[in-house]
Design a protein around this nucleic acid. Structure first.
Lengths: 211, 211
DNA sequence: TAGATTGTTAATCGATTAACAATC
DNA sequence: TAGATTGTTAATCGATTAACAATC
């Protein structure tokens, strides 16, 4: 398994957005410095783990002082790759696809939804926050004109693999998959799954097991 | 950290719904038996891990044969707690809340959405698949009449903690949280987070790091 | 300077993988 | 019976935690 620029484990990667979230909050609250100890208490981690995590990327702190909140937030923003913009399309303009298109917070971090696609004639032609719903047949042409970084799959399960294949054919290298199936992709394509049912079943398990 | 009936790690818990998903597919494809080896190939795990996972719960296989697909699926269904029904309410009837209410698949596994709640007068009175959107002020009364197992938070971040507090006050012990914040709850309450932005940022990180 | 807190190395813990006897 | 595959124990690997010298 190749591990790009930063040789970093999945566990660390998953914590990065959480650090980013907490640091944004602290910045908003005008907190200027933070120690690994204080951050650990806020986030429910250990101070050791936090320092280990940051040192995967080179250490942004200062002995005796801690971390500058703004600086640390910016570093993590950089690591996550949020200092550039991403063009996004959503395939599947049903309720979930529309909900995602309506969620304007993604834009604030540079994720711009350029179009939705569907096969349903009733949806095609619609517009959500000014984003058009187009026929899936137009997708290939659309992506040729406007390079797309991320493809979102919000179709039913039965169509998900087909949609993934089409995205890959169009040269899209990153897929955010909401369909309850693990789509198969070539090794240069990244997939991030949001399996809502899996999450709900996990909750069911935990509530029956008091953990 | 107390670990209910089954003393099982988070990593194992997270794999259970995935097993369930694959086994359902195989059952649909009328596959009757499966070995840990074959399942490992389908799922991208190791056979060892699969056998270890199942043996957390007591081993459902037979030497020389493998596992009966239907039986195994049923066992996992039992472990997950999907042989009972769950009453669910959704607080926040915006796009995401509506999308969740519209997603009829949850019902098939026994999760019944009993009502949505909101503060927006424009949404109150609406009906989604026959599920009413009520005023949040009616929630406490509603939950008294109809016991609710799971509360879904699909409000903006700013309201999430308040909503969680209200749910807890109403006796709800399980929260499925879609707001981009970690709500604080007493130790007997279970929270499962779906942090969409975290997931998206993870994807951004990975696409910039070729992992 | 003295106190605080990092960056980093070492120790521990837990999860995954390997191996194999048991047995269908 | 012979072959296959589990359940389970042991070995390995990786991630988390602890400890502490470096240094602000």
């Amino acid at each position: 398994m190749p591990r790009g620029k930063y040789g970093v484990s999945e566990a660390v990667i998953r914590r990065l957005p959480k650090y980013y979230r907490y640091l944004k909050e602290m910045e908003k609250a005008e907190i200027q410095r933070v120690s690994s100890k204080e951050l650990s208490q806020r986030m429910g981690l250990t101070a050791s783990q936090i320092r280990q995590d940051f040192n995967c990327f080179g250490g942004f702190g200062q002995q005796g002082y801690g971390y500058n909140v703004t600086e640390l937030r910016q570093e993590i923003k950089k690591i996550l790759g949020l200092y550039r913009n991403y063009n996004v399309i959503i395939v599947g303009a049903g309720n979930l696809g529309q909900a995602l298109a309506n969620y304007s917070n993604f834009e604030k971090e540079g994720f711009f939804i350029k179009a939705l696609f569907d096969i349903n004639p009733r949806l095609i032609g619609m517009s959500i926050r000014g984003i058009e719903v187009l026929d899936i047949d137009q997708m290939e042409e659309f992506v040729k004109k406007e390079p797309i970084d991320i493809g979102v799959i919000s179709t039913p399960k039965a169509k998900a693999q087909e949609v993934a294949d089409l995205m890959i054919k169009c040269g899209i290298k990153s897929i955010w998959n909401f369909a309850p199936i693990d789509v198969e992709v070539p090794p240069d394509v990244v997939v991030e799954n949001v399996h809502l049912s899996d999450s709900l079943y996990t909750l069911a398990f935990k509530m029956n097991n008091g953990s």
